[in-house]
C-alpha cells in the first residue's frame, strides 16, 4: 500500500485555529452555560436540558420568535421586489450609472446605531421631520413611542431604507451581466416587457437573488442595533425582536443559562432556514 502523506494536515491547521478561535470556542462557552445554572462566584450547577425545555415552552419566546418572523417576512416581501424594480429602472450605461450606484451604496455605509438614532430623531412628533409632518401637516396622530403600529411601520421603513440597496446592487450586477444578444432575441420574437423579465432577466438573476435573499434573511433575522436604538423594543414589548429579548434575558436579568439555551435555539433556526432556502434554490442548478 502506498504510504500516505500526512503533511496536508499542516496546511489545514491555520484555518482550524482561526475557526476554533472565532467560532468553536465561543460557541462551546455558550453550550457550557446552556446546561448549567450559576449564581455568580463561578459556581455552576448541572441543569441538563432544562433551560432548552423552558425556552421552547415559554410564551415570551414564542411571541418574540413570531415578531421576528413577521419582521423578516415583511422586510423580505418589500425589499426584494422593490430592489429588483429599482435595479431594472437604473441606467445600464452612461453618465448616470456611477451616480446611481454611489447613491444606492450610501445608506449601507452608515453605522447601524447611527441609523437608529437618525430615525429616532427623524420621527419625534414635535421636532422630527417625519413626526412633525405626519402630525401637523397630514393630520395623522403619529407617535411611535406610544403606538405599536406606528413603531412597526417605522422599524420596517427604516430597514427598507437601510438595506434595499443591497438587493438593488446585487440585482443590478446580475442584470448588467446579461448579454445584449438575449434582449435582441426577445425583440425579434416580439416578447413583451413582462416576458423579457420572466424568461430572461429573472432566470439570469436567480443566483444573485438567492444570495441577496439569503443575506437579507440572515441579517434581518439577527437584527439588533437599529430597532434597539430606535424603539428599545417598545412600546411595551411590541417591537422586541429575538435578539433584543435575548439581550434583556442575558444582560438585563443576568439569566445566563436560559440566555445561552435561547442563543443556541436562535442559531439553529437561522441555520436551518438558510440551509433549507439555499438547498431549495440550488436544487436544479440552472447556471
Amino acid at each position: 500500500m502506498k504510504k500516505q502523506n500526512q503533511k496536508a494536515w499542516f496546511f489545514v491547521l491555520p484555518v482550524l485555529l482561526l475557526v476554533a478561535f472565532n467560532a468553536l470556542i465561543p460557541m462551546m462557552t455558550v453550550v457550557n452555560y446552556s446546561v448549567q445554572e450559576t449564581f455568580g462566584n463561578n459556581l455552576f450547577f448541572w441543569q441538563g436540558l432544562d433551560w432548552f425545555e423552558n425556552i421552547l415552552r415559554s410564551e415570551r419566546f414564542h411571541a418574540a420568535l413570531g415578531r421576528q418572523f413577521l419582521f423578516t417576512g415583511l422586510i423580505l416581501l418589500i425589499e426584494v421586489p422593490l430592489g429588483v424594480i429599482v435595479a431594472l429602472s437604473m441606467p445600464r450605461k452612461g453618465f448616470w450609472v456611477s451616480i446611481c450606484l454611489v447613491t444606492m451604496a450610501l445608506p449601507m455605509l452608515i453605522p447601524w446605531n447611527v441609523v437608529g438614532a437618525m430615525w429616532n430623531i427623524f420621527t419625534l412628533p414635535d421636532i422630527g421631520l417625519v413626526g412633525y409632518f405626519m402630525n401637523h401637516v397630514v393630520g395623522i396622530d403619529y407617535n411611535m413611542t406610544q403606538d405599536p403600529f406606528a413603531a412597526w411601520v417605522t422599524v420596517i421603513v427604516m430597514d427598507v431604507w437601510h438595506w434595499t440597496s443591497l438587493v438593488v446592487l446585487l440585482s443590478y450586477a446580475g442584470l448588467v451581466s446579461i448579454p445584449e444578444a438575449y434582449y435582441q432575441a426577445a425583440k425579434i420574437d416580439g416578447a413583451s416587457n413582462w416576458a423579457v423579465f420572466r424568461h430572461i432577466q429573472l432566470p439570469k438573476m436567480k443566483s444573485v437573488l438567492t444570495i441577496a435573499i439569503l443575506l437579507r434573511f440572515m441579517d434581518s433575522f439577527n437584527i439588533y442595533t437599529e430597532p434597539f436604538v430606535l424603539t428599545g423594543g417598545g412600546p411595551g414589548n411590541s417591537t422586541t425582536l429575538l435578539s433584543i429579548d435575548l439581550v434583556k434575558i442575558a444582560l438585563g436579568q443576568f439569566d445566563l443559562g436560559p440566555a445561552a439555551a435561547m442563543s443556541l435555539i436562535y442559531f439553529a433556526i437561522t441555520l436551518l432556514v438558510s440551509w433549507l432556502f439555499y438547498t431549495l434554490m440550488t436544487k436544479d442548478n440552472t447556471n
Binding site: K187, I200, P203
Partner: peptide
C-alpha cells in the same frame, strides 16, 4: 416596422437560448 413585424430570425455568435426553458419550449417560443 419592429423586428417582430418584419418576421425574421437571428442566430448569434453567442448561444442565446432561454435559460430556464427546455429545448422544446425554446424552439417553440417564437
Amino acid at each position: 416596422l419592429s423586428p417582430q413585424k418584419r418576421n425574421i430570425s437571428l442566430v448569434h455568435q453567442f448561444f442565446v437560448n432561454y435559460p430556464h426553458m427546455k429545448v422544446f419550449d425554446n424552439i417553440a417560443s417564437p
